[in-house]
Design a binder for these strands. Structure first.
Lengths: 403, 403
DNA sequence: GCAGTAAATTCTAGTGCTAGATTTTCTCCG
DNA sequence: CGGAGAAAATCTAGCACTAGAATTTACTGC
C-alpha cells in the first residue's frame, strides 16, 4: 500500500530541498517577510531559515530589503532583515489549447498575467496548424509583454484530451486526442522552456485549488461541449495511469444522462429539438435563427421567464444533478465546482441542480458551486501549474539573465 | 494543490523516523539481512544503517545473529553481522465484524494467523450484542493462540459501514451504520491496544495490495449482499473525508444496474423471481426449497448447464460489467479485483463480464480478476493493516514484555 | 547620555547523516 | 606460518539542522 519514498536522494539533501521549498512557498505570494515570521511559519530554527534565505538571495529568488522597521508593525528591538520574493525573476507561459480557440498568457511568478493573446482555430485544423497556432499565440503574448523568450522558464499547455504517463499514449488510442495534443510537449524545446502538457479539466481543478477553501476533495467540472472533470483527492490532483481519471464518457451509462455531451451542447440540441417539433410557439427562442441558436440564448430566455427555455433549463439541471451525484457519491467529494466558459451564466441551473441532489444522494453533503474564475479557468490553471513547477524546482535552476 | 507536509516535526527527527521505517520495512518480511544488503536496499550509508540496526536491536525489534558466514553465500572477507526481524515480538488482532458473522484472527508481525475464531451473529442484534460478539471472538482467538492480552499491540476491525474522519459521523447519518460500528474503536482501550476501525471494502483493498503486482490504481470490489469498493489510487488507499469513497449506493443511477444490491442478493432474487413466475420448468433450481435457494445453487446449476440458472448468471455478468465500467471509466483503474466470500465461485461470471466490458468502455484497459484470497479477505486486510500500523510506529513503541 | 528592555543576529555544542580513509577479521594460497 | 585479498566494521571530517547562550541593535524613559 504505502509505496515508499523515492529513496534515491540521500536523506540530507532531501531535507534541504524540502525546507527550501517550504520557505519559498511561504515567501512566494506575499509581502516581505522577516526571518522570525518564517521560523513561525515553517517551524525551522533561526539559523536554518537565515541560511536558506541567504542562499535563495544569492540565487536571485529573493531580495533583502533593509527598510527593516519602516514597514514592520513594531518599534522595539533590533530591526529584522526582511526578504521579499522577486516575482519578476522569471516568466511563465500558460496556454489553453482548446478545440476552437488557443489562448496564451504570459505571467510573472505570482501568476499575474502580463500579456495575453488568443486566436480562433478551425476545429478541423490539422496537427501542424494547431502547433502553429499555439506558437503564434505564445509568440504574440511574449512580444506584447515586451519581454523575450529567454526570460520565460516554463510553459504549461492545456488540451482537451487525457494525458497519461503509462500504457499506450492517448493519441494512439483515439485520433481526436492525437489531434488535440499534436506533440505539444516538444514545442518549446529549442527555447529551453520546461514544457508540460496537461488535461484541460485537470488544469481547471488546479485553478480552483485556492478557491477550494482548503477542501481536500473536490471536482472541477467543465460543462461546455462535453463534460470533463479534474479531480482532487486528499489535497492532490489525481490523474490516473492513463490520465483518464475524470474522463466522463462513462456518463453514457448513467440513467437520465445517457451521453457525455456537456450542458452547452445539450441546451442547444434540446432547444432545437423543441423548435423542430413545433413545440416552441410563443417562445422567444423561435425568433433566433435555428443555426445561431445556442446555450446563451436558452439561458437568457429562461432567465426572462420563457417557458420553453425554462423546460430546457430544467433538463440541464436534472442532468447536472445526476453528474454531481455520481461523482460525489463515488468519490466522497466535499465540493463540485462548475466551471468553464459557460459557468458564469449557469447560476440558476446550478441552484436548481442543488435542489435535486437529495433525490439521488442518500447523504448529499457535497456542495455544488459555480466557479468565479470566469471563462479562462483552464489558462489560469496552466499559469498556476507553471508557477508551481518553477517553485518546486527553484533550487535546481539558475534564473534567466535579466532583460 | 500541494498541501505541504505536516511541518511540525523538526526535519532531523523526520528523517530518522523515515530511515528507521525503511530499514524496518526491508527486514520485516524476510530472511536475516546484513548491513551491506540494507545499504543497497535503502541507499543509506553504512554508519547510518549500523546505528539504526543497533537501535532497533536495543528496542527489541531485531536480533543479531552471529552465524555470520554460515548462511551467507560468500566465503571471503570479514563476516558480516546479520540482523533478523522478530515476528513474535508482538501480536496483532484482525477482525471482520460483518453483518452476520464476526471473525477474529490473532497473527504475528508477519501477518501469519496464529489462531482464529468466528461466531455467528443475528443480523438483528443490537449494539451491545455486537460488541459482545467481537469481544468474545477476539478473546477466544487469543486464548486459543495460547497467548495473553498483553502481547497484543494493535487491533483492526472491519465493518460494513463508512468510517470517516470529518463531518457528521456515519453512525449519526444512518442507523444501520451506527449498528454496524457500535463504538468499536473503544472496545480494547482498557487493554492498551491501538485500535482502528475501518470499512470492510477498504480492508479488502489493503489485503489485495500485495497481489496487485504493484498496480498503482485498482479497486477491490466486494460483491456479496451489497457492492462495496475499496479504492487505491497512486498506490494509496483513498478514503474520502467521510470515508465514503467507493460507497456504491450511487449505482442506483447506473443504467442496467439500478440498485446497489450485490451479486449474491441479485442471484437469489432473480432465481426466485423466475421460479415464482413459473419460468423455471425443468430447471434444477425448481428442486431447491424456495427459502433455501441462494447464489451458490444458482452458480452451481449454471456451471452444470442449467438454462434458467445460465440466464441469471448472464444477468450477473452484465451487472458486474457495468459496475466495473463505471469504476474504471471514471477512475482510470488498472484492475478491478472481485472479492468477498462469493468470489471463488464467480470465475465464469467474471469471465463473461470481461467480454462485455468493450460494450461500455471506449478503451477497456482495465483488467477484471477474481481474488485468490478466499472468503477471509476482510480479516486478512485487517491483520495486514494492523501489522502496517505497528511497523509505522515501531520507534514510538516499547515492545510488550515477553510471555 | 545612560541604563533597561525588546527583538533580532551570531556563536557554540551536539546530533544524524554522508563519504571516504583506515582498521579489523576473515579465507586462500604459497 | 605469513602475506595477499576481500568484505565488513570503525574512524574522521564535514554538512545540515537544532537548541540555547551570547551578542548586537535599536527604542524608551529617566
Amino acid at each position: 500500500m504505502t509505496h515508499g519514498a523515492e529513496a534515491t536522494t540521500p536523506s540530507t539533501h532531501l531535507v534541504r530541498r524540502l525546507n527550501a521549498e517550504r520557505v519559498l512557498q511561504e515567501v512566494w505570494d506575499g509581502e516581505p517577510v522577516t526571518a522570525s515570521a518564517l521560523m513561525a511559519a515553517t517551524g525551522l530554527a533561526r539559523s536554518t531559515v537565515l541560511a536558506l534565505c541567504r542562499e535563495l538571495t544569492d540565487r536571485g529568488w529573493l531580495v533583502e530589503l533593509d527598510d527593516a522597521r519602516a514597514a514592520g508593525a513594531y518599534t522595539k528591538g533590533r530591526p529584522a532583515l526582511r526578504y521579499a520574493f522577486r516575482p519578476d525573476a522569471a516568466l511563465v507561459v500558460g496556454v489553453d489549447a482548446g478545440q476552437h480557440r488557443v489562448s496564451a498568457a504570459v505571467a510573472d511568478l505570482h501568476g499575474r498575467v502580463v500579456a495575453e493573446e488568443s486566436v480562433h482555430l478551425d476545429p478541423g485544423s490539422d496537427a501542424a496548424a494547431r502547433r502553429a497556432s499555439v506558437l503564434d499565440a505564445v509568440g504574440v503574448a511574449v512580444a506584447r509583454a515586451g519581454r523575450t523568450d529567454r526570460e520565460v522558464v516554463a510553459a504549461v499547455l492545456g488540451v482537451p484530451a487525457p494525458v497519461g504517463t503509462t500504457g499506450v499514449p492517448a493519441g494512439e488510442r483515439n485520433p481526436f486526442w492525437a489531434l488535440m495534443n499534436p506533440g505539444l510537449e516538444d514545442l518549446f524545446a529549442d527555447r529551453g522552456w520546461d514544457t508540460v502538457v496537461e488535461n484541460d479539466a485537470n488544469l481547471a481543478a488546479v485553478a480552483e485549488a485556492e478557491h477550494g477553501d482548503g477542501a481536500a476533495a473536490y471536482a472541477a467540472l467543465l460543462v461546455g461541449e462535453r463534460f470533463g472533470a479534474g479531480i482532487v483527492l486528499d489535497g492532490t490532483l489525481r490523474r490516473g495511469p492513463r490520465g483518464a481519471i475524470g474522463e466522463m464518457r462513462i456518463l453514457d451509462l448513467v440513467e437520465g444522462v445517457g451521453r457525455s455531451d456537456g450542458l452547452g451542447a445539450l441546451a442547444r440540441d434540446e432547444a432545437r429539438r423543441r423548435l423542430d417539433a413545433g413545440r416552441a410557439a410563443g417562445s422567444v427562442l423561435a425568433d433566433v435563427p435555428r443555426d445561431r441558436l445556442d446555450a446563451e440564448h436558452v439561458l437568457a430566455a429562461a432567465g426572462a421567464g420563457d417557458a420553453v427555455a425554462g423546460e430546457v433549463v430544467d433538463g440541464l439541471a436534472d442532468r447536472l444533478a445526476r453528474v454531481c451525484a455520481v461523482l460525489s457519491g463515488l468519490l466522497d467529494l466535499d465540493r463540485v465546482i462548475v466551471t468553464g466558459a459557460m459557468a458564469p451564466a449557469l447560476g440558476p441551473v446550478v441552484e436548481r441542480a442543488r435542489a435535486l441532489l437529495p433525490d439521488h444522494l442518500h447523504d448529499p453533503s457535497v456542495e455544488v458551486v459555480v466557479s468565479d474564475l470566469g471563462p479562462d479557468v483552464v489558462r489560469t490553471g496552466a499559469v498556476r501549474l507553471a508557477v508551481e513547477h518553477v517553485r518546486s524546482r527553484a533550487l535546481d535552476r539558475d534564473l534567466p539573465a535579466e532583460g
